[in-house]
Amino acid sequence: MINAKPTLKSTFKALLYLAPLLIITLVFTIWPLISSFLMSFYTKYNYFTNKVSALGGANFVYLWHDPDFHLAVRNTLIFVVIVVPVTVLLSLGIALLLNRINRLASFFRTIYFLPFVTSTVAIALVWNWIFHYNHGLLNQLLSCFGVHPIDWLNNPRYSLIALIIVCIWRELGFNIILFLAGLNNIDRRYYRAASVDGASSKQQLTNITWPLLTSTIVLVTVNAIITSFKVFDQVFALFHGTAGPANADLTMMYYLYQKFYVENQYTVAAASGIVLFGFIAIVTILACWYFRRHAKLLGGNQL
């Protein structure tokens, strides 16, 4: 048993155990993965008969010339560039604060994590109400500081900001938990040794916490990048099933949804999915590469 080698019989048995997972994965993950790549190159496709009459890069050419898609890419990039650093830094800051207080830490943690367990769609509706131009809570609060009411949801200049606020608010808790776990993994003895050596708390942060936390920072960043690129639910609910005023909140995922579900242009939608995937992959790899280089400079552990 300890030194058992795989045999045909044992392989067959293992396949029985694996079959349920493998069949579902094959049909709903592996096949669609291949299929979506193929589909993005179909130029004449009848979905009812599943017949492909022509292949080519026409779908990508279409995207290249579609102003809506440009807008979607632009919005998504702006969104990612703002949301990712803000989320990462804010959640890191909060995690560090939570880590140094003794009392109420778990109470605060519970509160910060709340948004993550609530339905995105449902809570976006609440935000929709808070952002309301005339009757919303936010404008009311801002007026206390002498700020004129802002039409968060109907003014293209502000509607992307509204979306960003909602997304950061929601993602914080999850990332805080990841950071707290990362901080907990750092051996307390390092800090004790450092205090004995006379390191100030600021020196401890830069010399111990920071380098040892690098892998967690990468994890959180990559996770934030992937989530942000795929934002959809919040847009849908915040703007009641539209992409915001003058498409100001049209994200790539929303574009895909629209092409696919509203306009039934499956192949264009599939192509936009591939482009989205490409963006995510490139940015993720860049982020990993950047951190890896800096981890070396900081003398932190290798990833």
């Binding site: 709903f28 599943n50 959809f232």
Partner: peptide, 16 residues
Amino acid sequence: LMMVPGELLLIPNFVT
């Protein structure tokens, strides 16, 4: 496969 974003699979799965 865990790294493949599920959204990419949306359309083909719908077709299936």
